[in-house]
Nucleic acid binder design. Structure first.
Lengths: 207, 207
DNA sequence: GTCTATAGGAAGATAGAC
DNA sequence: GTCTATCTTCCTATAGAC
């Protein structure tokens, strides 16, 4: 019945939202079910009608976080015209990742911030989805390299991890009222493709 | 008496090491004083002779983590010959940061992984040291730009945060038996300065 | 479906013997 | 300085009324 619109489904969604928010702010262990219940305007005991444990609740939040960012990046790629450059495709993926992380964000950023510190069972359960998302990026980068848009000697695994790190870390510093997400994505890609050194190709490179 | 070699000081250091290790693995909230005591071969109650609370213990671990990486990067800069290029200086700083994070690492990586999720009091206490470390990087990058080694239109604040993100994230993926830290640092700097695009300046650029 | 009440356990911290 | 024992509090989870 996922996604149905019964009252139960709506309450369930409200709890999940509250959990994502609270987990993101405080982390898994430091979040109590009372915190979540308060954020969802309920009593602690009532949560158990919808979720069997704190761990299961976290599992769903983490899963939804990865699914959202995965779907967002995938969509960004499908919406591109067939003939756009590899740089455009990567810019689009970077932008989509940042949007999901920083704007649509409690689920995805809970995922980023807490993945390392959940109970083993939750961690294990979640690994497959993480890998699937990593595979999407592998594919994007590999294609760019095969087309010759990325230098042949770039280590794609290293590049991917550095890029994910640079992007994911933005949850720690991003301020909505400063630079726009789109501007950040553009600058990331410009530095990435053309380098920060003064000898790099100039100006119109990112147009 | 910090750094003295009395028995008390040695026990204190042993507890701190155990705490850094355990906090890094499990996070602040999920770590119990019993965990720390076990890792230090003591009983829980005995910890209180040396530290007044779990929060104070975390404060010291976090402080030591930043101090170590700050000192390491500073040392890397002082040891360079006066005439090395900006790229060399940054490579050296990147390398030092990674070494502290990945090799000498429980204090620094506890810091990276848990900074967002400690009690407010601990967080507040720690902000100054974080800022001082950020200032060191600001200075390194600004100087490189002033010398003309970084393109004039690079946003240094953004660059710094992206770079810290890319480096710090390595605690999540680094495997000691794969690529060496030195090789990672070199590749990071090569991609960073010259870009990943196929049009970038070739080969000897990083020599 | 949501509430109140509470069981059962573990956590941080303290007291006092040695 | 370190131990054992314990206080107090808070948390997850369950039971049963409504």
């Amino acid at each position: 019945m996922t996604g149905s619109n019964t009252k139960s489904a709506r309450t369930r969604a409200k709890i999940l939202d509250a959990a994502a928010l609270t987990f993101r702010l405080r982390g898994y262990a430091a979040t109590t079910l009372k915190d979540i219940a308060e954020a969802a305007d309920m009593q602690t005991g009532s949560l158990y009608y919808h979720f069997e444990s704190k761990a299961k609740l976290m599992e769903e939040v983490l899963d939804k976080g990865i699914r959202e960012v995965h779907a967002g990046v995938l969509k960004s790629q499908k919406e591109l015209a067939a003939d756009v450059s590899a740089e455009q495709r990567i810019l689009s993926a970077v932008h989509a990742h940042l949007i999901l992380l920083l704007k649509n964000g409690d689920y995805t950023s809970t995922n980023i911030r807490n993945f390392g510190q959940v109970p083993d069972e939750v961690h294990q359960h979640h690994i497959k989805l993480r890998k699937a998302y990593a595979d999407l990026w592998r594919k994007i980068l590999r294609q760019a390299q095969q087309e010759g848009a990325l230098a042949a000697d770039i280590d794609l695994a290293l590049l991917r991890m550095l890029l994910m790190g640079a992007l994911n870390w933005s949850v720690e510093w991003y301020q909505p009222d400063k630079t726009s997400i789109e501007a950040i994505a553009q600058q990331v890609c410009r530095m990435l493709f053309h380098g920060i050194g003064s000898s790099r190709p100039l100006k119109n490179a990112s147009a």
